[in-house]
Computed example of a mutant assay.
Amino acid sequence: MNRALLLALGTALCAAPIALAGLSADAQTTASQTPFKAPLAADGHPDLSGFWSNATLTPEQRPAKFGDRLVYTPEEVKALENAVVAEVKEGNKPTDPNSGAEGGKEDPKKLRPEFAAAGGDVGGYNRGWLDPGSSVMRVNGQPRTSFLTTANGQPPPRLPTAEPQPGFARGRGGMGSFDNPENRSLGERCIIGFGRNAGPPMLPNGFYNNNYQFMQTKDDFVIEVEMVHDTRVVRLNQPHRTDGVRPWMGDSVGHWEGNTLVVETTNIPQAQAYRGSWKDLTVTERFTRVGKDRVLYQYSLNDPTAWAKPWGGEYEFAPLHGIIYEYACHEGNYALPGMLAGARNQEKEASAKHAAASE
C-alpha cells in the first residue's frame, strides 16, 4: 500500500466500530446452555440486517511463529490488545515539526510495518485517523490466531499445473507505471476499495473503514461496503448468469440452508483475482446470526485448476455503533492527478536533459 493511495482514500466519513471483543467465561457458559435464537426478518429468515464491522487485530494468515495453533493464549491476547492502547496513546500525541521525521510525522521505525509501508499516518494525520481494529477476533469465544482454518493458517500450495501467480495484484497494484490512469490500481481510481473489503471473500484492509450494512428482503441480500461505497447485490434463489460478463465483485446468488444464508459467487473479474485465482474460482460464503451482537462469516475457495481441494476461513462480524456514510472517493482524490502530473513533469525533465546532452 503506498502513501498516495491512502491520501486518495482517506476522505471517508465513518463511525467508530465497537471492538470485536470476546465473550466472558460466564457468557460463554450461558451461551452453550441456552442456544441463541435469532430474531426473524420480514422474509421469515434470521435477521442479518444492520451495521457491522470486521476490524480486528487478527490477520487472515497466521504468523508462522504460531505454527498449527488456532487460538491465542490469554496472555498473548492481553499483550496484543494492550499494545494497541499504547499505540493509540502514543500515536495521537502532537507531532513535533522539529523532530527530524519527514513532514513532522511519527518516525516510521516506531510504526507497525504495514503503517510504515503505507507512508506512516495517512499523509500526515495522527493515529486517530486509522482504525485497523483494537482487539483479537473471536469465533464462539475463541481468540483466533488467523482467519484461515487450514492446519497451519496459511493458503495451501498451488497445484504444479496452476498458472503462475504474477497476475495476483493485476488491476490493484499499479506500482511503477504512471503512463495513464488505467495503469493505476482500482483503489486509486476509486473503482473498488483497496484490500478485499468488498470481496468475496470480504476481508478487513488493516487500516480503516472496515464497515458494512446488511439489508435483506425475500428476493435479495444487499451488502453495502463503506470503503469506496461498493454495493454487492446477492440475488436469492436465482441461477448464475451465463453471458460471460464478469461484474465487479462477481456474480453472487444465495439461498437459505436452515438459519444460514449461503452465497455462491462466480464470474469474478481478473482485476479482483484472489491469490492468482479468478477464471475458475467459486467463493462460497455462509452468514449465520449466532448472537445478539455476532454474525459468523465463513468462506470457502474452490478452484480445481489452482488448489487440490477447497479451503478457507472464518471470523465474526461485530456491531457498528452508528451508521456508514457515503464514501465520496473522488471528491478528495487529489493523488491520482498529482501522480500523473508528476510523471509528465519527470518525462519533460528527462527529455530536456537528453536534448541538452545531444547538442
Rank of each mutant, 00 (worst) to 15 (best):
E226P: 14
P160G: 02
Y208V: 15
R235D: 02
V262D: 11
P247Y: 04
K309G: 03
L5A: 02
G141F: 00
A350P: 00
A8L: 10
D26E: 14
G206C: 06
V233I: 12
F221R: 05
A328M: 06
D107T: 13
P97V: 11
D107N: 15
G22D: 04
P304M: 08
I191R: 15
D220S: 13
F214T: 01
E264N: 10
E326D: 14
F66I: 01
D47N: 13
P132C: 02
A27F: 00
S134Y: 06
Y72G: 12
M175W: 15
K348T: 04
P46D: 11
S99Y: 09
L23P: 03
A41V: 01
V136L: 06
G153Q: 08
I192C: 08
L148T: 04
T149W: 03
W129N: 11
T150K: 03
P63Y: 07
T11H: 15
I268T: 01
S99P: 03
F207W: 07
G250F: 07
G50N: 04
R294K: 15
D219M: 06
T242R: 11
L111Q: 09
F115Y: 13
V228S: 01
R112T: 09
A116S: 05
E226V: 11
M249P: 04
V222L: 02
Q346K: 07
V263T: 10
E359K: 14
Y315E: 01
G342H: 04
L186P: 05
E226Y: 11
N82L: 03
T56A: 05
E264G: 01
R158M: 10
K78P: 05
R289C: 00
A79T: 09
E224K: 15
G22C: 06
N209V: 12
Y274I: 06
R172C: 13
N209I: 03
D293G: 00
R158G: 11
A42M: 03
T260Q: 05
F51E: 01
V71N: 12
E331D: 14
Q346E: 00
R246Q: 10
N267M: 00
M137A: 11
G322V: 05
P108D: 06
T284M: 08
R289Y: 00
A41D: 10
A271V: 15
N183L: 11
G153P: 03
P269S: 10
P239S: 12
A356C: 01
P74Q: 10
I18P: 00
E257P: 04
S135Y: 00
V295F: 00
W307L: 08
P63S: 14
G276P: 14
P59Y: 01
A55H: 02
R144K: 14
P155S: 13
I191Y: 12
A352M: 06
D26I: 13
N259I: 12
N2V: 03
K218Q: 09
V136S: 05
P181K: 15
G276R: 13
H321D: 12
Q298Y: 02
L340A: 10
V234N: 06
D96N: 11
Y212W: 14
R235Y: 03
L20P: 15
G342V: 04
I18H: 03
A116V: 04
P181G: 10
P200T: 08
G291T: 11
A21E: 12
P160D: 09
F115G: 01
R344F: 01
R184Y: 12
E359Q: 10
Y325N: 11
V225A: 08
A16P: 01
